[in-house]
Each structure stands twice: as C-alpha cells, then as structure tokens.
Design a protein around this nucleic acid. Structure first.
Lengths: 331, 331
DNA sequence: TGCTTTTACGAAAACGTTATAGCAGCAATT
DNA sequence: AATTGCTGCTATAACGTTTTCGTAAAAGCA
C-alpha cells in the first residue's frame, strides 16, 4: 500500500480509504487507486486488516464427521454461500468426541473467526461450552440439525417430529404390525423428536408402544450388528424398521440379508439417510432424506447476516426445513 | 499480554518470549507466566502474531467436491493431522470449475495461509495458475490424487497404472471378452494412468484394444446414463466394466438393471470407488478402493514438514500409496 | 463580502504481537 | 585484574492495515 501511495502521490490513508470505497474519497482518485492496485495485483493483508478491524471474513464449521453424506452435503451448502460472500471457511471434525469439540471451541476463542456454524457431537452431558464460548467471544453462532435444544441460539433444523410420524405411519400402512425405531444410545435433540414422532404414529394407529420397540445402537458398527441380529433372530421379531440414522439403515440391510429375512415381505425398512446409492440397494431403500445442502445454505446465510448486521445479533431465529420421504421397494 | 506483564512485574517482551518457550527466559519465570496465562485463559491473537511473523498456522485444502466419499475421506485424513499439529484448515470447493479454482488461488495470494493442498479439477487446459501461485507466494503446495503431471511439485498419488492393470486382468480372468473402461471426457493424469493399465492388461491377455473400449462419460449423470445405455443396448455389447470413477459405477448398475443384464453373468463390474455401501449393492460391487484417508494424511504431513522445515522446501517428493482391490459378487 | 459548511485529503495513532538490539549482573577465563 | 562470555531481562521498532482527528480549499449562504 505504501508503494501504491508513493506512486500515486497520495497518502497511505487515502489509498486505504479509496480501496475501502470510502465516501471521503473523490471518484477520480478512487479510480486511479483501483487501477494501479489491479495492475500490481495488490491484495490487502488480511492479518493486518483483521487485527486493526478486530474482525475478519473467516468463519468456522464444526461437525462430527465429514464421511457422511449428510454432513458433506451440508458443508457443500455452507461453502456455496461463504464462497459467494467472499468468506473463508475453516473446518473442524469432532468425530463425536465431546472433548475434541470443547478443545476446538476453546481454541477458537483466540479470535480467529467472526462466526461459527455447529452441529453438535452426540451426548448431552452438557452444552455449557457453547454458552461459555458465546459469553467470552460474543461471536454469532448458528446450530444446524443436531442442536442443543436447551440453549437460545439460532438454529436450522428439519421437521423431525412430523416426518418421523409420517414415515412410521407409512411403515404401518405397508403392513408392519411391530415396527421398531433404530436410534442412538446417546440422546440428542434430533433423536428425541424422531422418537416422539415414531411413538405418536404408533399410538394414533392403534399399535401400543413398548420400550422394546426402540433399538439403541452405538457408534460401533460390529456391536450394532450383533444387537440387531439378536433382536431379529427372536420368534416375535419386528417386521418394520425405521432407521433414524444413515448407518443403521445399512446395518439393517446386512442383518436381514444374513438372516434371510426378505425386504419388504418380512421386514419393511425406511432409512433416514441421504445415501445416493439408496435406489441401488437390494431392494431399493425407501428414505427420509434431510435437505442437507439447503440446511447448510440457510445456516451460512443466517450466520453472515448476523455477522454483518449488528441488528441481527439478537436473533434466536429457528429455521425449519422439511425432510423428504421417498418410497421405494423396501416397503 | 500487557495485562499479564503488568501483573507479573515483567515486560511485554519477556511475557511473549516466555509463552514462546524461548531459551532466553528462565524456567521459573516461564512457569509464572504460563500459570497466569492459563488462569486468565489468555490466548495470543493470531492476527497480530501472523502479521508480525509473516506466517501462520493456517492451511487450505482445495478440492473439486466434498460430496464424494473419496474426497470426504481425504479431508478427514488431512484434518486428522492438521488438528494434531494445531493447524487450522480452510476448505474450498471448485466443483470441477477451472475458473473457480483460479479464483480461489488468486484470493489466497493475499497471504492468508502458509500452505496448500490441492486435488485439481478436471480439465487440462492449463496448470499455469499453480505455477503462478507458487511464483508469487513461494508457499509450499502439495497435490494429491489428481495431480498436474507436468509440474514439479510434491505429490501423493496411488499406483493407478498397476492397480488398473490388475483390475482389468481380473475382469478378463472372470470371463470378460470385451471389457470397457468408463472414464471421463476430460483427460486427467489419473485417468491417463488408469487407461494405460487397462490397455496394457488387454494386450497382455491377448485381447486387442480398440477405441470403442473406452466409454467417455461426463459430469452430467443423465447424459452418462443415456451414453451407456446406448452402448449396452447394442448386439455386440461389452461384457465387462471397469468404472474408473465412483459415480460411473453407479450408472453402470442402473443401466444393467434397466436393460435386464445380469451382473456378473452378462456383465462383470469393478468400480473404482470408496462407497461404503458397495457390499450392499445388488450384487455386491467389487471395488478398487483408493486409500483416501491415508492420502490425506500423507499430503498434510508432507505439507506441514515443508512449512516448518525450510530445508524441505525444495522437495518434489512423490508418495505412492497402493489401491486396494476387493473382489465381491459383481465379477 | 464574510461566514459556515462541505469535500477531499493527510498525519498519526492504534491493533497485539515478535524480533532485534542492548544492557545489567555474574561467572569463567586469562 | 582485566577481559570475555553467559544468562535473563527490557526497550523499542517493526508487521500492514484502518480510523480518528485535523485542515486546507472549495462551495454554499446571507
């Protein structure tokens, strides 16, 4: 910038203001400055700028996992808006590890970013680290999908209750007398809602709910397999599965295949998943897909609005997007 | 830091050096400083630090796509090492768009990062933007998987030639007389190598190669479908597929399903993919999987070495990892 | 005309670090 | 006893911006 100023016979401040399109600078000088800047491919140093302005155009995304179509799509959605708004996007993966999540959050208290998008890792032991982060940094944060229900922050979620209700009703309509919900052991906001939908659908359709209709799976795929295999080996085995998580749908298929249970004759399956191969499974899997890309887009849009307009800071807006049910041959 | 210095009766420089674990500072003062810093949860401002040091602990990853198991796994691998080395990772998606790739690269000339990991978007029109980026920034960059073969940069790749050769040989051994390679229209280094392996395997096994044994697919899934459907509707249709890209394997299955061609009786299929659902497809898909996670790890490890040790700067190291062939029912 | 206001710019002080150079005080060497 | 060399610390000048304040000149107004 000093170089530019010298060459133009201007002061550094004038050049800075011209580049910042300040009203204090005449149109003609602005033009001169812009042109020379372009000629020299001058790019303002973001560190100096951020240091002085005490904020920058960098945000962070914290998610449990990226090797998962849902989160990959969400990141895609987020990136599409940060890219267009000229923001840089950091990515941090927690691998469902609460300690890691806390560590990342604490790290980000150094002021590296101007905003944060999060989908929390499983476990509900405490959300205080989010609150702490907010207290100390006062930075805008937006949660999506896996949100901490107890905290007052802006969120982007789906109609988990309604769509679970609908999916369960479809299972029943397809002939299932003993449907089960396959869900996590760790209670999360999303799974609680999905369970509510499942349970209400049973009761509205005259099927009494009992606790063994919930199968709790873990993060350990092998363990999940044996849990489910055991349940489906019983005489009075379930005849319908609502797999509320992508990978549990896959396990369901494996178990049925190995136990020679025919889908959908013996067992009807709906999976909550964004798998692109759903239609190619044997038989093709009926899915309740989340609008992952759009959720990412909405979350990023909201965050940037909050960063740029102070007025938005207080927003504890909640955006609800609909899941999409696609019925295929597994039901 | 000023606050800390005051409270400890030290100068700011001493505090800074103590936090930086400088040898100039006695063990006892270091301890005092560290303790108070911890007590106040003091975190050095990265902008100030980066500005002064003229470099930081931020790197960028530029990839064509994230909604793809291969790249998602690679990012996972990258993040695992950047996380452990306390680096922050930016992510940029090009969506196979060369202009976007160039734009990102130009943007990053502002000095935001200290290193760069790239897998290039399709198209070979020119790699000069990478060279330009390097010339102006002198930053270390590491390419992985889709590498610009003509440029002298460190790279992490797989044994594309050998494993393609092997996969093709297996197709032939399984009875395929007329195998085809499904690949991109855009020539990339990886696809060229895969094609060489394919072609050599044919010739070594007494099957003459001809141009129609290469099916060129695009980024448009619908178009790909019609291209392949047309080819497989012919009388003298192929009886083996080596799908060199994840999504083309899926299209292959769709086409076979719709044309009532039985896999593996009528058509044998091997897909180059990291799909987790490969084993659950109908029939289970034989795959040539890339060590995506490890490639990411290696790339990030190499990059950080280059960033931290000046001596490494000249490295145009090439790391080759083996692909893994898993034979399932599709062959 | 004399006055105030506006316009277009410049000087200089931040922003929060780190690196360089310098300087006591003390020990070791000659 | 004089020189040299450590050790542990401080003062200060960067790093490259932005912003606040000040001020000439031009413009507006009575």
């Amino acid at each position: 910038m000093i170089q530019l100023a010298k060459e133009l016979g201007l002061s550094v401040s004038t050049v800075s203001k011209a580049l910042g399109d300040s009203h204090e600078i005449s149109a003609s000088t602005k033009k001169r400055v812009l042109e020379l800047a372009k000629k020299y491919k001058y790019k303002p140093n973001p560190f100096a700028s951020n240091l002085r302005k005490k904020k920058g155009k960098q945000i962070a995304v914290i998610i449990p996992d990226i090797v998962n179509n849902f989160f990959a799509l969400a990141v895609d959605g987020i990136e599409s808006v940060t890219m267009s708004k000229h923001y840089d996007t950091f990515i941090y993966l927690t691998h469902e590890n609460l300690e890691r999540e806390k560590a990342v959050l604490e790290h980000l208290e150094n002021g590296l970013i101007s905003g944060l998008i999060i989908s929390v890792s499983t476990g509900r032991e405490g959300y205080s680290h989010f609150q702490d982060f907010y207290e100390t940094t006062k930075l805008p944060l937006v949660f999506f999908d896996r949100v901490p229900d107890l905290l007052q922050f802006p969120k982007v979620i789906t109609n988990n209750y309604e769509s679970s209700y609908e999916a369960t009703a479809r299972l029943i309509k397809a002939g299932s007398k003993r449907p089960v919900l396959v869900t996590t052991t760790e209670p999360m906001y999303t799974s609680v809602e999905r369970r509510r939908g499942f349970q209400d659908a049973l009761e509205k359709n005259g099927i009494g709910f009992s606790d063994e209709m919930i199968i709790h799976c873990t993060d350990d795929m092998d363990l999940n397999y044996s849990i489910m295999r055991k349940i489906f080996s019983q005489k009075k085995r379930p005849d319908g599965i609502f797999a509320s998580i992508e990978k549990y749908a896959i396990t369901s298929y494996q178990v049925c295949k190995d136990l020679k249970l025919v889908i959908p004759k013996d067992v009807r399956v709906i999976g909550m998943t964004n798998l692109r191969t759903a239609a190619l499974l044997n038989p093709s899997l009926s899915t309740l897909a989340q609008p992952a890309f759009d959720m990412g887009k909405e979350a990023a849009g909201l965050l940037i609005k909050m960063i740029e307009k102070k007025s938005y800071a207080a927003a504890n807006e909640i955006i609800v997007l609909p899941n999409e049910l696609t019925i295929r041959d597994s039901i």
